[in-house]
Amino acid sequence: MTDIATVNAKDRGEARASSSTGLADPRRATRLVLSIFLGPGLLVYAGLTAYPAFRTIYDSFFHIEGLEATFVGFANYVELMGDETFWIAVRNTFVWSFIAPILDVATGLLLALALYAGVPFARFLRVAWFTPVLLSYVVVAILWMWIYNYDWGAVNVILRTVGLGDLASSWLGDPNLALGSLIVTHAWKWAGFNMVVCLAAIHSLPREVLEAAELDNCGWGAKLRFVIIPMLRPTLLSLYILSFIGKMKIFDLVWIMTQGGPLWATETVSTYVYKRAFNWNTFDLGYPSAIATVWFLVVCASVLILNRVLASKDRLEY
């Protein structure tokens, strides 16, 4: 006890000596140091994110042609409410955002469970399933345009080979099939990412609980339903919300594969904003700025609502 008290007194004495000599606490940083480290990042954020966002909101109250801007107040927003194409784009984007993430997360979970169960060639499959995540949207779009080709695409060739030629379709040319085809393409690209996250979450589950389920002769189906999925719920919800945010602003895949067609069947808000701003030669940046502003608020509100609705009330601890 005497030795411990002596050591503590010595430590307190050294702390007082350090403070009296003016030595800085290593856990604290001066404003100069903070400015040096945070300044470049804040400047980049302000110039490439914050300023464009606030400028878009500001421009939404003007009619802009070239360098001339005429203040119109809320006229762009009033016009937006009666824009039928905009509401079609909203419907398609909501289908993307609310339904497609279920396919993405479910596919990633199934792949993760397959690897966790020890399927043959697991190492090769782990790499093969994750590879699409590394591909750019341009490569993925061109690849799947070939796969969906009506004459020699892999999908129709397989259908004709197995005697289901009547099901062969113009997957990107049929308004009833185009959106679903794009959703499948997007799920193929991101299934590997969801697989890796789910697999890491499964390996982090307590072994005691899984072993107890096995000792109780709990089959894979029951163990998945009553043990694994409930314990993975926070991870699955996080993946769903991330997927939701990404799909609310989907642009590049749609633009390369269909450009919003056919007959607006795959039009999203992002592609519609681009068309109104640069593609239709309307020479007015105010109206697409109003669309972007409204959608920015919709995305923020949707994320807040999803976090509130899907948040787990009972926190799992293990």
Rank of each mutant, 00 (worst) to 15 (best):
L110K: 04
L111P: 01
A112I: 00
A114H: 10
Y116T: 06
G118R: 08
G118E: 01
V119P: 12
V119L: 13
V119S: 07
P120Q: 07
P120K: 11
F121V: 03
A122D: 08
A122N: 09
A122I: 02
R123E: 02
F124T: 07
F124V: 14
L125E: 01
L125C: 07
R126G: 03
R126L: 03
R126P: 02
V127Y: 04
A128N: 04
T131L: 10
V133M: 02
L134Q: 10
L134E: 06
L135A: 13
S136W: 12
S136T: 12
Y137E: 14
Y137N: 15
V139T: 12
A141Y: 00
I142A: 14
I142M: 14
L143D: 11
W146E: 00
I147Y: 09
N149L: 02
Y150I: 08
D151S: 13
W152F: 12
G153T: 07
V155R: 05
V155I: 09
N156V: 00
N156Y: 04
R160C: 01
L164M: 13
L164E: 04
G165L: 02
L167I: 01
A168D: 04
S169C: 07
S169N: 13
S170L: 10
W171T: 01
W171I: 03
W171H: 02
D174V: 09
P175R: 12
P175Q: 10
N176Q: 14
N176W: 11
L177Y: 13
L177I: 11
L177A: 05
L179F: 08
G180Y: 05
L182N: 03
L182D: 01
I183N: 07
V184N: 12
V184I: 15
T185D: 11
H186M: 10
A187N: 12
A187E: 01
A187V: 13
W188G: 00
W188V: 00
K189G: 02
K189S: 02
F193P: 04
F193R: 12
N194F: 08
M195G: 00
V196R: 01
V197N: 07
V197Q: 02
C198Y: 01
L199T: 12
L199I: 04
I202S: 06
H203I: 07
H203N: 15
S204P: 06
S204N: 12
E208R: 10
V209L: 15
A213V: 08
E214H: 05
E214F: 08
D216K: 11
N217K: 12
C218V: 13
W220D: 13
W220Q: 14
G221E: 02
G221P: 09
K223Q: 15
K223S: 15
L224M: 15
I228K: 00
I229L: 15
M231A: 09
M231R: 14
R233L: 11
R233T: 15
R233N: 05
P234Y: 00
